[in-house]
Amino acid sequence: MTPPDAEANRWSDLDRPPLNAAALRRALVRPDSLWTSLDVVRETGSTNSDLTALTARAARPGSLPEGAVLVAEAQHAARGRLDRRWSAPARSGLFVSVLLTPGDERRGAVPVDRWGWIPLLAGVAVATALSRAAGVDTALKWPNDLLVTVDGEERKAGGILAERAGDGSVVLGIGLNVSLTADELPVPGAGSLLLAGARTTDRDPLLRAVLRSLEQWYGDWRAAGGDPVASGLQETYAAGCATLGRRVRALLPGEREVSGEAVALDGDGRLVIATDEGGLQSVGAGDIVHLRPAESG
């Protein structure tokens, strides 16, 4: 990891100034907060990999407390689902990972079979934060994509990756394109908050909003023992999910495919598809393709 730029260089790029780590810590790391530490590095391969490694190197379980936050100004080996790579220009997005310990018995462990809701919870938290802080409606593509509308078209602007990091721990990573221009997009069909008409692309208030929203949703979910109904998570995710009600193709492990209409989320956060063969199938892992009407036949 490369240390962050000195604060003297904060305004070296007026369009994309570096994050102010000290100000972020003052705002977010408090005695009554979920967030216990916050570090910003100038560049790294993957914040998820770095935070997972720090957790593994901890001298004893729990010595790296829940709520550790690691943010990078640039990533060159970020990973998404299915080990896909994610890259963007420096200071053009939010690249952040946090350590959560839903299995901590001291706080009342959430059953492991409910941990599949964590990336969905993060999607709800990010979408809620962006609506408030940036004025951008963010839809959720099951299970972990963040969609914005650019020129009337749905575009992926971010993604979420949750990984086990030892007994009781999860490292949750969020990547979000903030100020990327059309020429900087990594792939056709990508988007950014800038292109979606965000009222701000200042990453400091955006990151504060995301982490505060995540703290609230995670706290409510934990307080409900991970119950997605009691915490309001299942209803809220379904309301913001662009996948539900759409015809989809699910690319499943083992090179299998299922096509049909996405009709619901089950109690484990799996996508329920009414298949073209007339049955119902719950999908817990795989790639989901939103089909256009011309592709439905």
Rank of each mutant, 00 (worst) to 15 (best):
T2L: 15
D5P: 00
A8H: 03
W11H: 11
W11D: 10
W11R: 02
S12P: 01
D13Q: 06
P17I: 05
P17G: 01
P18Y: 04
A22L: 14
R25P: 01
R26K: 13
A27G: 05
L28R: 02
L28I: 11
S33M: 13
W35H: 07
W35G: 02
T36M: 15
L38D: 05
L38C: 06
D39Q: 13
V40I: 11
G45R: 00
G45L: 01
N48D: 04
D50E: 15
A56W: 00
A56M: 04
R60V: 14
E66Q: 15
G67W: 06
V69D: 13
L70F: 04
E73Q: 08
E73R: 01
Q75M: 07
R79H: 10
G80E: 02
R85Q: 12
P89Q: 03
P89A: 04
A90E: 11
S92Q: 05
L94K: 02
V96W: 00
L100S: 06
G103F: 04
E105H: 03
G108D: 12
A109L: 09
V110I: 14
P111Y: 07
V112C: 09
D113I: 12
W115D: 12
G116N: 05
P119A: 09
V124W: 05
T128W: 04
A129C: 11
S131W: 12
T138G: 01
W142Y: 07
N144K: 06
N144R: 03
N144F: 09
R155E: 01
I160N: 00
E163P: 03
A165H: 00
D167V: 11
G168T: 10
S169A: 15
V170Q: 10
V171S: 01
N177P: 12
D183T: 10
E184A: 07
L185C: 08
P186H: 08
V187M: 12
A190V: 05
A190C: 07
L194Y: 10
R203S: 02
L207N: 09
R208D: 08
R208E: 12
A209I: 08
A209S: 10
R212A: 15
E215L: 11
Q216R: 14
Y218H: 13
W221P: 08
W221V: 13
A223E: 11
V229G: 12
V229Y: 03
V229Q: 04
A230S: 03
G232S: 08
L233S: 11
Q234F: 02
Q234K: 14
A238H: 06
A250H: 01
S259N: 11
S259E: 14
G260L: 12
R270L: 11
I273L: 13
E277D: 15
G279S: 15
S282T: 12
G284R: 04
D287R: 15
